[in-house]
């Protein structure tokens, strides 16, 4: 099988983002950027499938600024075989990302696309489902286990009530949840090797996709701030305060 893994360059998950004073956006100047954590899980899953012999080739693809090469190199260092960067400085909404990925799918004919269930910047949780829809493929979202059973893919999904397992025909799109695997750290020799792996640069117009934003951000604000309250001395004190002051018991 051939697997496509889309990866996104986002703010590092350890960084607490700040809103710009003019409320136009969040401030990403000089902020540490990383691969979206769910995409790391996706790369890891694809590489494990390759190591297990179910997959022959893993292609990482990113849509974003030139700097997204860093995240593609990381995917290559983790074990992806080659990479494609569709370079743009614009904000690309999930729908446009899905359209671009659909074009890549038409060109590459992967049997499987594994991608993160959401990006931790816009928290949209849409792109995988949209790609599946555009391709007419089935989708296994929020996956915590993926196994090939004959010619079907079994995906165990983390759902509100517990776990659900579904069987999908291939090609299919799988989106990863946190417990699918624990991504590896790339070793130094693999980081060196990754520098020599092929990385193709493209632009959205190469795929004939026009990037048009459908959502206009009117403003970005701080959420209502919670003030730290008080420290109580004892359990008895806590229960008393909850009963008589907060009135919640």
């Amino acid at each position: 099988m051939k697997v496509l893994v889309p990866v996104k360059r986002v703010i590092d998950y350890n960084v607490k983002v700040r809103v710009k004073p003019d409320q136009s956006d969040v401030d990403l100047a000089n902020v540490k950027m990383s691969m979206n954590p769910f995409d790391e899980i996706a790369v890891e899953e694809a590489v494990r499938m390759k190591e297990a012999g179910t997959v022959e080739e893993v292609i990482a693809v990113s849509i974003g600024p030139e700097k997204a090469q860093d995240q593609l190199r990381q995917a290559l260092a983790m074990g992806a075989d080659r990479a494609i960067l569709i370079e743009t400085t614009e904000t690309v909404e999930p729908l446009s990302v899905a359209k671009l990925l659909a074009k890549v799918c038409e060109e590459e004919n992967p049997d499987l696309v594994v991608m993160g269930k959401q990006a931790i910047d816009d928290d949209c949780n849409q792109t995988g489902q949209m790609l599946a829809a555009l391709m007419g493929w089935p989708q296994g979202t929020f996956a915590s286990a993926v196994t090939k059973e004959g010619d079907k893919l079994h995906v165990t999904r983390e759902v509100d009530g517990g776990l659900q397992t579904i069987a999908l025909t291939l090609p299919a799109v799988v989106t990863t949840d946190l417990r699918l695997n624990e991504p590896r750290y790339a070793s130094l020799p693999n980081i060196m090797k990754a520098k020599k792996k092929p990385l193709d640069k493209k632009s959205p117009s190469d795929y004939g996709v026009e990037i048009i934003a459908r959502l206009k951000t009117l403003k970005v604000t701080e959420p209502p701030k919670r003030e730290a309250g008080i420290k109580v001395e004892s359990v008895a004190d806590l229960v008393e305060k909850l009963k008589n002051e907060a009135g919640v018991l």
């Binding site: 607490k16 983002v17 928290d123 959502l215 951000t217 403003k219 970005v220 701080e222």
Partner: peptide, 10 residues
Amino acid sequence: IYAGNAIATV
């Protein structure tokens, strides 16, 4: 957005 650290009006 950003784990609720910002609220976008769209």
